[in-house]
C-alpha cells in the first residue's frame, strides 16, 4: 500500500546541510499499524511529513496504492492530502471557530466523503455525543485529540499518519485515545503510521520501526 524507497532529505543549517533521512526503504500494508520510534532528531517527523505530502524529498520515491506521489506539484499534493491521507497532530490543530460537529465533518466534507452514519458511529465511539456544540477552546486536551481523531477517520483516508497524538496527554488519557484510534483504524481497515517516543505505546501497534541517524535500524 505505502511503499517508500531510497528516501533522502536534508535541511540547511548554520553549520551547513544536515542530512535527516539517508535512503529510507519502508513498506506499510493496508490495515497495518506501525509505530515509528527513535531519538529526537532521528527523522521520524520528517518521514511522516514526506509520507503525508507536506514536504518534498531530495531523492527516493513514495508510492501510495500503486501511484507515485513523490514529485507532485502543490495542487496535486493538496489533492493527495485531501483524498488519500489523514493526519493527526500532537497539537490537535482543530479549527477554533468551528464547533465539534463541524470540526469532525470538515475533512470528510472537503473530500466529498461525508457519511452521516459513519460520523455518528465515530462520535459515539469517541464519546463526543455531548460535546458536539462546543468549541475547541471549551474542551480538555483529551477531548480535543478525540475530535482530531474523529475528523481524520470520518474522511476515511487510506493512510492515517499520526505525529505523537498522545504527546500532550496524560498517560491514562493517552492510552484511552490510542485504544480508540487502533480500534477504529483496524475496524475500518486503514493503515496507520504513528510517530511516538513511548516504547510502551509502540509495543501496542502491529509493528515497530526504529530510526537512528536518518536510517532504519530495526
Amino acid at each position: 500500500m505505502l511503499l517508500i524507497s531510497g528516501l533522502t532529505k536534508h535541511y540547511a543549517s548554520a553549520e551547513g546541510p544536515v542530512e535527516v533521512l539517508k535512503g529510507i526503504d519502508f513498506q506499510l500494508r493496508s490495515g497495518e499499524s506501525v509505530a515509528l520510534t527513535g531519538e529526537s532528531g532521528s527523522g521520524k517527523s520528517t518521514l511522516l511529513h514526506l509520507a503525508g505530502g507536506l514536504d518534498r524529498p531530495d531523492a527516493g520515491t513514495i508510492n501510495l496504492n500503486g501511484k507515485d506521489v513523490t514529485n507532485l506539484d502543490d495542487k496535486q499534493r493538496a489533492g493527495y492530502r485531501r483524498y488519500q491521507v489523514g493526519m493527526i497532530f500532537q497539537q490537535f490543530n482543530l479549527i477554533p471557530s468551528l464547533d465539534v460537529a463541524s470540526n469532525i465533518s470538515f475533512h470528510a466534507r472537503l473530500a466529498g466523503r461525508h457519511d452521516p452514519l459513519w460520523q455518528e458511529q465515530l462520535v459515539e465511539a469517541l464519546g463526543l455525543s455531548l460535546l458536539l456544540t462546543r468549541y475547541p477552546e471549551q474542551l480538555s486536551g483529551g477531548q480535543q485529540q478525540r475530535v482530531a481523531i474523529g475528523r481524520t477517520l470520518a474522511a476515511k483516508p487510506s493512510l492515517v499518519l499520526a505525529d505523537e497524538p498522545t504527546g500532550n496527554l496524560d498517560e491514562a488519557t493517552g492510552d484511552n485515545v490510542l485504544d480508540l484510534m487502533l480500534l477504529l483504524t483496524r475496524s475500518a481497515g486503514l493503515a496507520l503510521l504513528m510517530v511516538t517516543h513511548s516504547s510502551r505505546l509502540a509495543d501496542r501497534l502491529d509493528r515497530k520501526v526504529i530510526l537512528r541517524g536518518g536510517k532504519i535500524v530495526a
Binding site: L54, A78, G79, R81, Y83, M87, I95
Partner: peptide, 10 residues
C-alpha cells in the same frame, strides 16, 4: 490545518 487536510496554498 486547512493545508494539511488538502487545501492548496493557491
Amino acid at each position: 490545518t486547512l493545508r494539511a487536510v488538502g487545501v492548496s496554498l493557491r
